[in-house]
Amino acid sequence: MIQYPFLRKGATIGVTAPSSGVQPELHDLINTAEKRLKEKGYDIQIGDTVWTQEKAKSAPAKIRAKELNEMLTNDGIELIFPPWGGELLIEILEHMNFNDMEPKWILGYSDTSVLLLATTLKTGIATAHGTNLVDVRGEYSDKTTAMWEKVLSTKRGDSILQYSSEKYQKEWQHDNPTPQIYHLTEPTEWKVLLGKDAQVEGRLLGGCIDVIRHLIGTEYGDVANFRKQFTKGEPILWYFENCYLNTTDLRRTLVQMRLAGWFEGCAGILFGRSPANDTVGNYTIEDVYQDLYEELQLPIIYDIDCGHVPPQITFVNGAYAKVEVREGKGKVLQHLI
């Protein structure tokens, strides 16, 4: 059975950096995000790791893990909200106290998705793949991003519906922030391989494919045991987003996932918009999706609101979801059951 945390109004949010911290010249990003969250009524507890960054990480692995473990076992904290992702979160997994975890939300994406997926697979505690802390520092959030609060405040047994965005951001303009942080200029279109419409359902699992692929073959990536122990063998609905991989690297990764059994009992696969997916030797991203379809014969939906091309829907690892695409528009109904 999946355990679902619950975010109360006025809850305490713990901010720690299990991957990358924030350089001194960018500390104002954290201060502004803290201010916005306090305006919403939350209390904020910021850890020491947030303020430092050296050698591609906020601090040595044991220090990062210690701060995170302390927040995870602090009864007063209901949400762990890292500032952003990074590169080396995987270093902390062997130092995590998964057996002592109490149900509380962890929210983020990019490298944070290593922690999200490992936590859900190991413990059956739902985690939330969505916005980073620094991206809620605006005067307000777009409708898609803003849903993180409603999703995390959904009670066990209830459902939450989200819709595809109207527009997405083509490129970052960090020196020109808008009141909602993003520059949403391009019309959003969810696409379906071999068709216009699709409907698929299953237990959500996923994250940034660049980094969660490194869980394959470890105790933190035991998908088969997760299905047996926590979902009674229900089908998995995978969602992936690609930050850096070109098409052949992505293809190798998907083949490895299939050979490792990650797609056994799979109902379908969702792919987020990507700033990568660079073509190699005329091998396009559509070719990658086509090859995967020919192997799995499963629905493939792509260019969804997920990942490094914002905004993004908040996906709950472990939730039972029904995803529907009609004429380029999508909706995601998540049941916290």
Rank of each mutant, 00 (worst) to 15 (best):
S141Q: 15
Q169R: 07
G221F: 03
M147T: 05
A146R: 13
N176E: 15
Y182W: 14
A224Y: 12
Y140P: 00
T178P: 06
M147F: 07
I212S: 04
V136G: 00
H214T: 15
K150L: 13
R137V: 00
C208D: 15
L152N: 06
T127M: 13
T123Q: 07
W148G: 01
E139P: 02
A118Q: 02
W172N: 10
T127C: 10
Y163S: 12
C208Y: 10
T119V: 04
K228H: 12
E189V: 15
I181W: 08
A126Q: 05
Y182K: 10
V151C: 06
G130Q: 15
E189M: 14
K167H: 13
K232L: 15
Q162E: 06
V223T: 12
D142W: 06
Y163V: 10
R213G: 05
D197Q: 06
L184H: 08
L161Q: 09
V151P: 12
G157D: 01
S164K: 09
V223E: 11
Q199K: 09
V134P: 03
E219N: 07
G217C: 03
K143H: 12
S141K: 15
F230M: 11
N132W: 00
P177R: 01
G217R: 03
V200Y: 03
F230S: 09
S165C: 08
G217H: 02
A128R: 12
P179K: 04
L205K: 03
L121Q: 02
S159N: 09
N132D: 04
G130L: 11
I181M: 11
D158H: 10
N225H: 12
Q173Y: 15
S164W: 04
V223Y: 11
T119D: 05
P179D: 15
E149T: 01
K196M: 14
R137T: 00
K196Q: 13
V151W: 00
G206W: 05
D135H: 06
G130R: 09
T185I: 10
I209C: 04
L152D: 01
L152P: 03
T154M: 03
L205R: 03
S153N: 10
T231F: 07
T131V: 04
I125L: 03
L194W: 13
E201N: 10
Q229I: 12
Q180I: 10
Q173V: 12
G207R: 06
E219I: 09
K228F: 09
K150S: 11
K143C: 11
S153E: 08
G138L: 06
K232H: 14
A118K: 02
E219K: 13
E139N: 13
E139Q: 10
K155P: 15
T131G: 06
R213W: 11
G202Q: 05
E171T: 08
C208W: 09
F226C: 06
T218W: 04
L121V: 02
K167I: 13
I181L: 09
A224V: 12
H174C: 15
R213Q: 09
D210L: 01
I212C: 02
V151L: 04
W148A: 01
V136L: 04
T231G: 11
L161Y: 08
E186H: 05
E186M: 12
